[in-house]
Computed example of a mutant assay.
Amino acid sequence: MAITVSIELNREFEIPASYDEVFELLADVPRSASHFPKVDKLTDLGDNTYRWEMEKVGVDKHAIQSVYACVYRADKDAGKITWEPVSGEGNGVVSGSWTLVANGASATSVKFKTSAQLTVPLPSLLKLAISPVIKHEFNSLVDTYMNNLRQAF
């Protein structure tokens, strides 16, 4: 038995660095991922495709781990970096984008948008209780990621 939790996130913020610097960091998936908290393992699957394995949360047989893979595409002229899910990889389906706009020579406006569906091996009776916990944890991880990115510059 399993439940699926859907999450949609949107963030907008400014990074105190040039467009080129910000784009270079965000388009480099391993470098960008190094700022994301609780990543257990990031595996390069080739062709700009990566499998993310997050740290396990919980205890023993009740531990939950998010695993998913995405293919990344970067278009510097359009100011867009996108990721699409790779089917059959893990228990998550994640897609999203970064949209960047230069804000003068030394600042970049950034929009982050992601959608995730995580399937976890729990009884459906727990969906109402566990869904908000998973959403809160995901929000917290993304907020920490955004703060880490700002501090990187």
Rank of each mutant, 00 (worst) to 15 (best):
M1A: 14
I3M: 07
V5E: 09
V5G: 11
I7Y: 11
I7N: 13
R11P: 03
E12K: 14
E12G: 09
A17P: 06
D20K: 09
F23K: 15
L25G: 11
D28E: 11
V29P: 12
S32Y: 06
S32W: 10
S32L: 12
A33E: 14
S34G: 09
H35I: 05
V39K: 00
K41E: 15
L42V: 02
D44M: 15
L45M: 15
L45H: 15
W52T: 01
M54L: 07
M54T: 00
E55V: 02
K56W: 01
V57L: 02
D60L: 15
Q65K: 02
R73W: 04
R73A: 13
D75Y: 03
K76M: 11
K76L: 13
D77G: 06
I81D: 07
P85C: 00
S87R: 02
G90E: 08
N91Y: 01
G96I: 00
S97V: 05
N103I: 06
N103E: 14
S109L: 13
K111E: 08
K111N: 08
T114L: 08
T119P: 01
T119C: 06
L122V: 04
P123R: 08
I130L: 14
S131K: 15
P132V: 05
K135C: 04
K135I: 04
K135Y: 04
E137W: 06
L141R: 04
L141T: 03
D143I: 10
Y145C: 10
L149K: 12
R150S: 07
F153G: 14
